[in-house]
Amino acid sequence: MANATLTRHDAAASGPEPAHRRRGRRHRGEDLTKILFVLPAALAMIALFGYPVVKNLLMSLQDYGLRTFFTGEAPWVGLKNYTTVVTDQLFSQAMVNTALFTIGSIAFQFTVGLALALFFRRRFPLGNLLRSLLLLPWLLPLIVSSATWRSILEQDSGILNRTLTGLGIIDDPVPWLNSPSVALIAVIGVNIWIGIPFNVTLLYSGLAEIPEELYEAGQLDGATGWLAFRYITWPNLRAVASVLLVLGVVYTIKVLDIILGLTGGGPANATQTLATQSYERSFIDFKFGEGAALSNILIAISLVFAVLYLRATRRAVDE
């Protein structure tokens, strides 16, 4: 399409016309070319990002339910969906759980990821092989990981409890997914396991960027071990780390599949987050308006972190 249009314009531009006009035409042709290059991406953005976001915003202001699909009617209800979801007895618990889930996941994913990245920075036999094996959790489909973890964490016959009791570490099986006080911890644990490869990979590449000379120079001043990390590694890694943390928050806050696969939000709503609540309202209760309202709240929170991310990357480029 774009090609055909271009040739037509080239042909027109090379016609017998005054020089300045020809140049003007050519300029216009170049502008058009630029627009044509941007157009497919712009259309894709509008269709795939713009439309759903706008539709979701509109939906959250409508009584959009089962009936809407048949009659096409979705009466405007203003902010009623928002007040309904915010005043729901589960909302504050879902907010707290979302916060705990996100902070807990990120904190451990990051520290464990950093420790592993530092560890693999040293060269040792099979180091590269081991590092690539670390990526495995990332390669597994989440459905498979959560199903596997569900059987590992099973209270009576799960391999984790069997092992722990076998080693004499615990006397009674831990109700990993069956107790409201433990389930969130178990779910966070699984999410940490899934997130570590991402953290290791980015931090490792960040570490590889730090020139070896800095350490050599530091050594002369007595900066080894912890001091080297504190004064050389960390300052040089900060840009990568801040980007990683912000991306981590945006990815973690919306996690749905792992929670649905492990606990479905239970037991007794102990692992309900904004994402699971939004899913439940839309696809179990068929109250799409309320589901959209919740997901917009989620988007707004993510947006704050996305802005932080943009600022962090801009600063990284400036540096």
Partner: peptide, 24 residues
């Protein structure tokens, strides 16, 4: 069982987008 639930999630998500596409 478990995969059903997730399949439903995915199907739900696609159904919604298909529905949106179908509205036009």
């Amino acid at each position: 069982m478990i995969s059903n639930r997730i399949a439903a999630t995915l199907a739900g998500a696609t159904a919604l987008s298909l529905v949106l596409a179908g509205c036009g």
